[in-house]
Amino acid sequence: MSEVVVEVRGLEHTYMRGTPMEAPSLKGVDFDVRRGETVALLGHTGCGKSTLVQHLNGLLRPQKGRVRVLEYDLNDPKVDVKALRRRVALLFQNPEAQLFERYVGDDVAFGPRQLGLSREEVRARVREALEAVGLGFEAFKDRLTFTLSGGEKRRVALAGVLALRPEILVLDEPLAGLDPAGRRHLVELIRRLKSEWGLTLILVSHDLEDVVLLADRCFVMADGRVVLSGTPREIFSQPPARLAEFGLQPPAVTAAVHALAEAGLGVRRDCLTVDEAVSEIARALGMGGKPWTSSSCCAT
């Protein structure tokens, strides 16, 4: 098994600590990520997931508990946060709102330029990052940022962090607000970042449909704690009512097979994709089609 690159133990955080407005956000979180893994952090608004990820590149420091990311000990007040942030990139929600340069090429180049790299090196990194997000370097480097579509802007923002060549990438609600085609493109892109760049990915989301397609492991947070963890299949085979307790909604396909099983049809409840559900329902209804097994479907 690969090394653990993020290790969080008993992390607590209270906003406005020591004032009458005190608001506890994290109440003892354990969380870990291995190199090359894609981990999803799930939970509804206010569960503490954003507070947790802000600890991962030193935007917040542990008040109680321990946080280690790569070889950086965030409990050490003298830790080199600047070096850490070159290796751990955080892309906030709606990053398209954060594009500020006039030209696409300059926007992507902003980070590498801050690193003090040579002109050629900056250019090479911008080229690599734009190609990685599926925007041709020659076609896009001189485009005006404000003329791009929403999906293109989001990819430019992503290229901006990839140009820093991080090892760990945290994406907050990466698919929110995109149209179906934009979502499909970005899912493919994130998969490629994983397989070709070997990035360790942490996806923060309240939309379980997205996560099903991407994550190796999920952590469900509620009220400042991790309340469930496991593979997507383990999480979504939970009864929908239990997920609803944590403010989550199972993917539509999973909800459909749960409902069919409740109605007495002999189908497995842990289907995650349309493909799986189709063959499972077809089998139960004697419509032919091959039954699937969890090992065969995970490859999709």
């Binding site: 449909e209 539509a252 396909v253 459909a256 349309v274 189709v278 329902i281 077809a282 209804l285 419509m287």
Partner: peptide
């Protein structure tokens, strides 16, 4: 796209 449930039904329809 179509709703996931609609996609599911369309695929079942193709089988039967």
């Amino acid at each position: 796209d179509v709703p996931h449930v609609t996609e599911l039904a369309a695929r079942l329809h193709a089988l039967d």
